[in-house]
Amino acid sequence: MVVDPGTGGAPARTWGRRGMLLGGLGVTASLIAACGTDTDAAGPSGSPSTARSLFPVTVPGKEGSVTVKTQPSRVVAAGYLRDTDLALALDVPLVGAAKNSAFASGLAPWQKPSDSPELFDTTNGLPLEKIAGLRPDLIMASDDYTLIKDWANLAKIAPTLSYLSGVGADSWQTMTTRAGTVLGKPDQAQQLIKKTHDAIASAKKSNPQLAGKTYTFGPVSSLDSLFTINDDSDASAQFFDQLGMRLSPEVTSLPTSSTPRRAQLSMERIGLLDADVLILAFPDLAVREQLEAEPLFKKLKAVQRGSYVAFDMAAAVAVAFPSVLSIPYGLQVTVPKLVAAASKV
């Protein structure tokens, strides 16, 4: 199983299913009230007195609301990626998590648990018996792309956190806020959001040479599967846009393929990818070498002047699946390459 790092894609056997919107900070006041957040609770965030005052909480969700009576002590992250990110970022007892088949270890490089949660394979669906055997008191499934069919079964095992708006439709800020609420750590969640926003702002300020530079970005799984992002609302596009870059007008006018926010190109039309900075993502070195050997690819102006950047899976997934853990990693591994490429323009 692979993922679509070009459009914030869901886990799939081919790259491409959906786009992920990076929305505004936090959620509405009505949602926060519904979640039962108590900003006037005494004691520091995460302390026993504060935690007790925050529960029980009810968090609304698209597939169903979740009610948690006490602070969770055995959490399972059943979603594709960001449920694990949020459990780790908020430092909760993570006893199990969905294995990420994009990485040999089953975990992304920015996921560094202090303990060793049991990783389970979701290629053929969620292993419900194994999840039940972990005895969770909370299942985080806001990044579960099959939750519409998983919800009823998961909710029978333990209280289950759904997405708010729809599969892949919640911003990373909303996901963080809701996770902080259900885990009894609302203040810590807001601190993580602020820290991540500050990291983005710092990267933009420290690298003014990126401002105004046009770019194109897309996943390449084979010479017959060449795609490019054509919509600014894509999660990956939002990552680059926040650094001051802008999506090339040459691709925003292209018709969208069956995959949202993505246009498909033939090799004969690869010239449309030319921009100040050309960014491509590859599942492995073999596919990258195959494309880079193509004569039409070599003729691209961005390639000839050294303004071409190749992302590996880790960088691509970090950009496409934004969270308070993946965004800092994405900034660290991609910004130097982007700056080097932009300097050649």
Rank of each mutant, 00 (worst) to 15 (best):
L128A: 04
A77Q: 05
G125W: 15
A87K: 15
A132V: 03
A77I: 01
A102Y: 05
K130F: 09
Q111A: 02
F120V: 00
Q111P: 03
N124W: 01
D85G: 03
A104K: 15
P113Q: 12
E118C: 10
A97H: 09
K112N: 08
V92R: 15
A89V: 09
W110D: 00
T122P: 11
V75S: 12
P93E: 03
T123G: 08
F120W: 07
R74C: 10
K130N: 14
D91F: 02
D115G: 06
V75F: 11
S73E: 08
L86W: 12
V92I: 06
S101W: 03
G106Y: 05
F103Y: 11
A87R: 14
P93D: 04
W110G: 00
V75H: 14
A97R: 09
Q71N: 00
P72A: 04
P93L: 01
L128T: 07
P72W: 10
V95W: 07
P117F: 08
S114Q: 13
V92F: 05
L134C: 03
G106L: 02
S116R: 15
P117K: 13
L88H: 00
G106C: 05
S105D: 01
P127F: 09
Y80K: 11
G79K: 15
L81R: 15
L119C: 05
R135K: 14
D91G: 05
D121N: 05
G106P: 07
L86K: 10
G133K: 13
S73T: 07
P113L: 09
T84M: 03
E118H: 14
D83Q: 13
T84H: 08
I131T: 11
P109Q: 05
G106S: 05
G79Y: 14
S114M: 08
L107Q: 05
I131C: 12
V75P: 15
L81W: 13
E118R: 15
L90C: 01
T84L: 03
T123I: 10
L128K: 13
Q71W: 00
T122R: 15
P113V: 07
P117M: 10
A87V: 12
S105L: 05
I131Y: 13
R82L: 06
T123M: 10
S101E: 03
L90H: 04
T122N: 12
K99D: 01
L134D: 01
L90M: 02
A97S: 12
P93Y: 06
F120E: 03
D121K: 07
G106R: 10
D85F: 06
S73V: 04
P72I: 04
K130D: 12
R82I: 01
G125K: 15
R74P: 14
R135Y: 04
L107E: 01
E129W: 11
K112Y: 01
S105P: 02
A102E: 04
A132W: 12
P93A: 02
P72L: 07
Q111S: 02
S116I: 08
